[in-house]
Write a protein that binds this DNA or RNA. Sequence first.
DNA 1: CTGAAAGCGCTTACAG
DNA 2: CTGAAAGCGCTTACAG
Lengths: 322, 322
Amino acid sequence: MEVTIKDVAKYAGVGVGTVSRVINNEKAVGKETRKKVLDAMEALNYSRNNMAFRLRKNETKIIALLVPVISHPFFAKLAYYVEDEASRFGYSVILVSSQQKVDKEIDIITKIKQREVDGAVFVTHYMHKEEELKGCPIVSIDRTFGERIPYVTSDNYDATKNAIKYMIEHGAKSVGFIGSKPLVGSEVMERERAYRDVMAEYGMTPHIVNEIIQHGEESLVVADFIEKYKDVDAVFVSGYTLSQFFYEEALSLGKKIPEELQIVSYDGIFKQWGISNITSVEQPIEEMARQVVRLLIKRIHNEETCQRTVLKTKFILGTTTK
Amino acid sequence: MEVTIKDVAKYAGVGVGTVSRVINNEKAVGKETRKKVLDAMEALNYSRNNMAFRLRKNETKIIALLVPVISHPFFAKLAYYVEDEASRFGYSVILVSSQQKVDKEIDIITKIKQREVDGAVFVTHYMHKEEELKGCPIVSIDRTFGERIPYVTSDNYDATKNAIKYMIEHGAKSVGFIGSKPLVGSEVMERERAYRDVMAEYGMTPHIVNEIIQHGEESLVVADFIEKYKDVDAVFVSGYTLSQFFYEEALSLGKKIPEELQIVSYDGIFKQWGISNITSVEQPIEEMARQVVRLLIKRIHNEETCQRTVLKTKFILGTTTK
DNA sequence: CTGAAAGCGCTTACAG
DNA sequence: CTGAAAGCGCTTACAG
């Protein structure tokens, strides 16, 4: 059916090896011969079968990107840059939304082992036995499980500290912390630590809710928080989606922002969609994406990589702080 | 290095064919033998190499999804459901953002020909010579190029008509139409036709801007429109991103919405991000995604498909209409 | 029920 | 510079 290298060889009157050589642009081919082969390829409308090619080379040139859910702006943006960077190195990217299911993570590990993809970047947060991952090129964002998974992250600790200090310097008397806690070890936990440290430094009482929040429960948790800590006049919100919920809930509960309540969130992604204008610590999504891809490609080729790459965030003033 | 079917066969003391049969769960294997093989696989920690498998089967079990840009909520949502549906049929999806570059579309066609993917769904709008696509399993959303590309779309004509009539019935005296025109034949063009027909029906003068709008030019085009058609008191906005721009520009130009200016847009996607609350014709993204995937899989297997699938939209009242 | 062999479409030493 | 052959890791008639 499809035209193969054999057909081209026969048509051009040469051996298949020769055809292969001109396809791969090796120089060791006579000018005459090359032309004959090229003509044959043209005439037969030949395209190389990359399944065969890759079987020989033992590489798929595909990486997987696992995010919690692609329809979230943060991950969508990340996916955009991951794909862009990957394509520069000749890789395609398979996208999978974990949808809070651990199976999806396991699926990908299986895909690596079955040579469907060369490696994966995990932005999800599930548990794994170390041994399962042995020899699998995997990199991650934020999460710190095990010693063998390199990851890129942002300066969670410093950025949080600065953001909270900013609110205090602008009049906050009592500041709270609300976050959606990741399931496994993650740099994200540094935010709570930074918060506690600032509270200690200023002799203030910490008011914290930092738990695993299921999708759909956000409003509830947020309302509880606001209810419980009535005298809090500044809040640091940690979590991709949480800040939007917090902002809206606070408004609907009649809080004046920022007069009665200042808000800073980690991840200013929403601004780009014009959704709101929350003062936020903005992660360098593009840079994170590009770095993580390059990290993965190095891992695939068994090159040395840093275990931890920290990128700088930006503090972006919105309308939710004084 | 990696353990192959051969190793398993040797370890179990059987032929490779037999191993293959138990991997593929064929019944024609003795109970004893099966167990021996299973044990060997376990002991050797065998995983099938799917590159080889797929070369034999001549299918990649991968489809490509080409969208203008994945970081846009509409496409992100679409991607989410495309991936979900594809995975139900055992397919992975490679994501690519065309970024307004025609090359990306050609890249994918090449990938199909080179057997890197089994087929593709195109949500982009570029030109192609018919012949290039010959034999390539491709399906599309909205666009109508050629006879050979099946597509799914929404009831553009009817929905637009109804939306415009709604505004007229609610007091609109002069209604305008602003749209971002697609590059190639697309069902999206039906919206302008519907608009013109309603105008004719009510004896109203059409005020139309429907052109190819470059990314970044939206605000300008919108401002021009509002400037030019000062007496327009209702507008139908066509285009994924345009409505948001229109809404904000109108506000910043001091228009009272909906008192002085009613707005209806095609695609209510933004609501889900809480961005705004524009009255809109909402496309059934999930259903479109699932249908388009099933269409593609049929095409891949050379089954008969409808050329055109039309899905119903919903008219969602927001705060931009009376 | 099972093994030996051919073949999927490529690449790559090995000779010449 | 070039061809014949082996091999990547699988599946699948073909015999038995």
